[in-house]
Amino acid sequence: MIKQANLLFAASLMFCLSVVSPVRAHLEGNTPPPHCQLSFLDGKLAEGWEAMKGEVVYVDFWASWCPPCVKSFPFMSQLTHEFKDKGLKVIAINLDESVEDAKEFLAKRPVNFPILIDASKQCAQDFGVIAMPSTYIIDKKGFVRHIHRGFRTGEAEELRRLIEQLLIEEI
C-alpha cells in the first residue's frame, strides 16, 4: 500500500512538473519564424516574413506598461537610423490588451520604425514569448538567429555587434 502511494505521489509530482514547465518550441538556429497574422495600427494587414527575405529583421515584442520596453525604444530608433540603408528592418509588435494604450504610448514617444499589432496574441504564442520585451533577430536567409529576452542598457552593444555581423553576411 505504501509502495503504491509512493508511486502515485511520484506520478502526481511528475504530472505537476509537466504542467508547470511546458515544452516550448526553440526557434534559435536554422529555423524560420512562425507564420503571423499581424496588422498595422490603422488596421491594414502586414506582409509576411517571406517578403522580408534578404533583409535582417529585428522583431521586438513589447507592451506600453513594460519599463524595459520603454528603455529599448531609443535603441531601436537608433538602429533604424543607422542601419536602415544597410538592410536592417526593425519591427515592433505590440502586445497590449488594449490598442488604445499603445496609441497613447506612441503619441508620447514617436518612432521611426513600423509598429504592428498582434490582436489574437497567436504570433507571440507561436514565437514562444515568455518575457517582455522579447527580441528575435532574423537573418537574410529568413532564419531566427538570435533570441534576446528583456532589455538592459549594457546589452545594447552586444546586440548591435550581432546585427552588424548579420548585415555583412551574404544570402
Partner: peptide, 20 residues
C-alpha cells in the same frame, strides 16, 4: 486526493501579454 492535488493547484500560467 493526489490527482486533485496535482490538477486543482491554484497555479496558473500568466502569459507576458496578460500582465498589464
Amino acid at each position: 486526493i493526489l490527482f486533485s492535488g496535482a490538477t486543482l493547484s491554484g497555479c496558473a500560467q500568466i502569459a507576458p501579454w496578460e500582465r498589464g
